[in-house]
Design a protein around this nucleic acid. Structure first.
Lengths: 128, 128
DNA sequence: CTTGCACCTGACGCCGACGTGAGGTTTTAG
DNA sequence: CTAAAACCTCACGTCGGCGTCAGGTGCAAG
C-alpha cells in the first residue's frame, strides 16, 4: 500500500505519516523508485499512534512504548514508563471530570436563571 | 495583593498572570507606582482559569465563558458554547479512557509474560 | 511518448501558553 | 539614604505536530 491509501484508510494526512516515520514511529519498505510501501498492518499501527497522541503522549514517549504494546513484553524501564503514563492519563481524566462538573453546574444555573438577552447586562431572565 | 504573592498562592508563574491579563482573563488595579494590585478573589479566579486550561479550552474560549461562570447567566450563544465545550470534554474523556484501557491491557500482558532483560530481544520471560 | 497524478525531499510557517532575558522603576528593610 | 528585592514593559525564544509551498521524480493510461 502506498502512502496516499494509508492516509485515506487511517484518516490522517500524508504529511503526518511522513512525520511519524521521521519520529521512528512507523517504517516502510521502499519501491525501487523510492516510494514508501506499507504492509496492511500499518493501518492499525497508525490508529494506535493516533490514540496515544490523543491521550497526550509525545512522540518520544510513544516511540519508547510502542515496542511493548506490540510485543506484550517490556524491560523494567519500559514497564515503569507504562505505569507512569497510565497514571498520567488517570490524572488528566480526573482534571477533565472536575472541569466538566464545573461546566455542568454552570449550565444548571443558567437553565434555572434563564437566558440573558444579547447585549443586556442586567440579571432579569428572558421570560415567555 | 501583589503579583508575586498571587503567583505563590495560586501556583502559577508571574509571567502566566501577566499573560492572563493580556488575554483579558484577569484584571488588576494599579498602585500609584504602576504595580498590579489584586483582590483576594483573584486566587480562585486564577485557579478556575487553570482548570479550564487543563480541560483543553483556549484563552479565547475561556474569555467568552468566564462571565457566565461567574454570574450564572448567559446569552444564547454563550450557552451554546457552554454545551459545546462540555461535550468536547466528554469526548476527550472517552478518548483518554480508551487509551488508558489499552495501556492497562498491555500492562496485564507484560505482567503475565514477565519482564525482558534490558537489551534482550527474545521473548523468554525472566523467571526466578 | 506524453500527460498527469501520486509521490519524493527539504525547508519554512504556524499557533498557543508561556520562558527568558534586557533594561528600567517602585517598594521595602535597615 | 542606600541596597536589594520585587515589580514594570517590551520583545524574542521554545516546542510539538503537523500545514504548506517549491522544485523535482515515479508510474500507469492512452
Amino acid at each position: 500500500m502506498r502512502i496516499g491509501e494509508l492516509a485515506r484508510r487511517s484518516g490522517v494526512s500524508v504529511r503526518a505519516l511522513r512525520y511519524y516515520e521521521e519520529q521512528s514511529l512507523l517504517d516502510a519498505d521502499r519501491t525501487p523508485g523510492g516510494q514508501r510501501d506499507y504492509p496492511d498492518g500499518a493501518v492499525d499501527r497508525v490508529q494506535l499512534i493516533q490514540q496515544l497522541y490523543a491521550a497526550g503522549l509525545s512522540s518520544r514517549t510513544i516511540v519508547e512504548l510502542l515496542p511493548c504494546v506490540s510485543t506484550g513484553t517490556a524491560t523494567q524501564s519500559m514497564f515503569d514508563r507504562l505505569l507512569t503514563e497510565r497514571d498520567r492519563i488517570g490524572v488528566r481524566m480526573d482534571e477533565l471530570a472536575q472541569a466538566k462538573a464545573k461546566l455542568d453546574r454552570v449550565i444548571e444555573q443558567v437553565l434555572a436563571a434563564g437566558l440573558t438577552r444579547d447585549g443586556a447586562t442586567g440579571s432579569a431572565p428572558v421570560g415567555s
